[in-house]
Write a protein that binds this DNA or RNA. Structure first.
Length: 691
DNA sequence: AGCACGCCGACT
DNA sequence: GTCGGCGTGCTC
């Protein structure tokens, strides 16, 4: 190719799909540029970042004008074909534009830099580590851990021999069974082979402790974290180190699944069942599912770790597509706590004006722990003092003026706060409707429970951990440190305390009021409750010395519910079998593929009108065969910040059929929008968590 | 999604 | 007179 011939390039830029510029765009440049090269290109009156992309086999007809690439940032090595195919797949599967997704998952800072600034940042990076230093002594593995690692090794070898990808491996073990040690050993052999390991965790909160564990085990190795809590400069630095292949260990939250890793050798998804792996805005991807896809495509092993796997994962184990590696023993001989169900319906009624937070037997058990100097953890999944205020005279309730939700009473700062839109006011002295002074809190949140405990257990040191008490950097770590230091006797918390934090001295865990999830309209609520309770129970009895005395208390009005029966036996398999039978009968995931079309508008009628028109358009398509479209319905909280939301469910036994319909249908919705004034936005959620 | 243009209402 | 509300149209 002559230097004088302008090369036509396909460039991915951040433009929304379903618009005239929603696909790859054509630009020209004096010479060929490899796919994956970062560029700046003119678009209208702006100059925008873009990535040179693979030229499609059937490029769209050449537009009238093709402009020139403005700047080539070739100090950055091109994003490789594996990365590009991950983005291609994710964009197609989650129905987003390639450019939109590709640019959105790059570190934001990278898009802002020009060639000079980028070169400077690259120059300041540390060099790759020298030869690996001697590893520190490692704990001996128990038989199950050894078996898991051998199974991993065997799967990798037999897959390589057969020229296929290794099957995903489910590391199935309760809290304290030593999953992390298996990750460390698996990472060790990958590092020894000169390759990179990617470790995903559900929440930022969990990165520091895992990072510390990896750093201690691999001194001298380059380890970076990737999550939204980093400063823009840190995030770019860490991303660049991974992209250049200098970082050998990359640890992060869901966004790290898109890290560029030229020598990827292992993927770990810890707590793979956790809903945080699903992105809830923009491109609504599942980092766990993409991690599995990426590992499969690159033919590297993927380890999914959980005590309570997602039912999707468990079903694949049943089908033989994933392999299960069981870890049933707790390290150090700890045992799972004994489960005690308290039948709230059989308790004597509290006296008039009395209110019972805790059953007498549970209170007695807490007293015992106190006397022995042991710690207890009370779980209540509701922050604030009371979920709603109520006027006894006129039945006014503390609704949010902007949302279809109650404002929560926070006693500490005397406010009414909407947990959906953030609208906050000082709590009124009297009923705003009728002036009655007797307005009362209804129900109970963590703040009130902590207050009641202080009265019920005089002298006990009560701690509270929830989103309110841990706002601000380092607050959670600070609160956790106080618990570890033994400065707290009874800890009250929301689900955030159940996740991953290792409390050695807790011998009693109690779920104060878990019943709501049993009868929720959300079909995944039981699965989440079971996982939460198993995880919370795992907080107790990690020390063998205390394991015999450790207990998990459940206060419930439905003690005969099968979920609790399975929990009492710590029998995940029985619970999963029962849930899967229900899902199969109801045609729900993993036996059906779902997608949700959401619409936001000023009025519910507008949102519903758009969805109905969209449904009519879909019904006319041949691709609609085999896909069920349900009528538009409001989500559980229909109005948020004065925006009315509606949603429409699509369901099909075939994932491919659903994908074909979405691909054929969604482009037409852009045009449909014009006929619905007042429609603010629409979006599709493939594999939604809640419907 | 930006970012322009353009056409109406109200304020220094 | 202009400042600014957001409807409409365009971007390789």
């Amino acid at each position: 190719v002559s230097d004088l011939t302008p090369e036509l390039l396909s460039v991915a830029v951040e433009t929304p799909r379903h618009t005239a510029v929603g696909t790859l765009l054509d630009y020209h440049h004096g010479q060929r540029l490899p796919a994956g090269t970062l560029v700046q290109v003119p678009l209208g009156r702006r100059e925008v970042p873009g990535l040179v992309w693979d030229r499609p086999a059937d490029p769209a007809p050449r537009p009238a004008t093709v402009r020139a690439v403005a700047q080539v940032l070739d100090a950055l090595p091109p994003l490789d074909a594996d990365w590009r195919s991950l983005v291609d797949f994710a964009a197609a599967y989650y129905q987003r534009g390639v450019g939109e997704l590709a640019l959105a998952v790059l570190p934001p800072e990278l898009r802002r830099l020009d060639a000079t600034q980028l070169a400077r940042r690259l120059g300041r990076l540390p060099a790759a580590a020298d030869a690996a230093p001697a590893a520190p002594p490692r704990p001996l593995l128990n038989e199950e851990q050894q078996a898991a690692l051998q199974a991993l090794q065997a799967e990798v070898e037999s897959a390589a021999a057969a020229g296929r990808a290794p099957a995903p491996l489910l590391l199935h073990g309760v809290t304290g069974s030593g999953k992390t040690e298996v990750y460390l050993h698996a990472a060790e052999s990958v590092l020894a082979a000169g390759r990179q390991a990617l470790v995903l965790v559900p929440e930022i909160n969990l990165t520091p402790q895992l990072e510390a564990r990896f750093a201690a085990r691999f001194p001298g190795r380059v380890l970076v974290s990737l999550h939204s809590g980093l400063t823009p400069a840190q995030r770019l630095r860490h991303w660049l180190l991974a992209h250049l292949g200098r970082a050998e260990l990359v640890l992060g939250t869901r966004l790290a699944v898109f890290a560029s890793l030229p020598r990827l050798g292992l993927v770990v998804v810890d707590e793979e069942h956790d809903p945080s792996f699903k992105q809830q805005e923009g491109a609504r991807y599942s980092a766990r599912d993409l991690a599995v896809w990426r590992a499969h495509r690159q033919r590297v092993p993927v380890l999914l770790g959980s005590a309570t796997p997602a039912l999707e994962t468990w079903q694949r184990v049943q089908e033989g597509r994933y392999r299960r590696l069981p870890l049933e023993q707790r390290i150090g001989g700890g045992a799972m706590p004994r489960v005690r169900l308290v039948d709230m319906g059989r308790l004597p009624r509290p006296g008039p004006g009395q209110e019972r937070a805790l059953a007498p037997a549970l209170l007695a058990a807490l007293h015992e722990r106190l006397a022995r100097g042991e710690q207890s953890l009370l779980l209540l999944n509701r922050r604030g003092y009371a979920p709603v205020l109520h006027c006894g005279a006129c039945s006014w309730k503390s609704g949010c003026p902007h949302c279809s939700a109650w404002r929560v009473f926070h006693k500490g700062d005397r406010t009414l706060r909407c947990h959906h839109c953030g609208f906050t006011e000082r709590v009124p002295r009297a009923c705003p409707e009728c002036g009655n002074l007797d307005i009362a809190p209804v129900g109970r949140g963590t703040e009130k429970l902590a207050e009641q405990l202080a009265q019920l257990l005089p002298g006990a040191r009560i701690g509270r951990i929830d989103a309110d008490t841990t706002r601000g950097v380092g607050r959670l770590a600070q609160e956790l440190a106080a618990v570890h230091a033994g400065e707290v006797d009874v800890l009250v918390g929301t689900q955030m305390v159940a996740k991953g934090h290792d409390f050695r001295r807790i011998t009693l865990v109690a779920a104060v009021n878990p019943d709501a999830a049993l009868f929720s309209s959300d079909f995944r609520a039981p699965e989440r409750l079971f996982a939460l309770l198993m995880q919370a129970g795992g907080r107790a009895g990690r020390d063998a010395a205390q394991a015999a005395a450790s207990e998990m208390w459940i206060q419930t009005w439905h003690p005969q519910h099968p979920l609790f029966a399975a929990l009492a036996r710590h029998d995940y398999a029985a619970f999963a079998a029962q849930q899967l039978a229900e899902r199969r009968a109801a045609g729900m995931p993993p036996f059906a593929a779902l997608a949700l079309l959401r619409a936001d508008a000023r009025t519910p009628e507008t949102a519903a009108g758009f969805l109905q028109a969209a449904q009519d358009a879909a019904a006319a398509l041949p691709e609609a065969a085999g896909v069920t479209l349900y009528p538009p319905v409001p989500p559980p909280v229909a109005r948020v910040a004065d925006v009315e939301r509606m949603q429409m469910l699509l369901e099909s036994p075939s994932r491919a059929a659903l994908q074909r319909l979405l691909t054929a249908w969604l482009p037409s919705l852009h045009a449909l929008r014009a006929g619905h004034k007042g429609l603010l936005r629409w979006a599709v959620d493939v594999d939604p968590l809640a419907i």
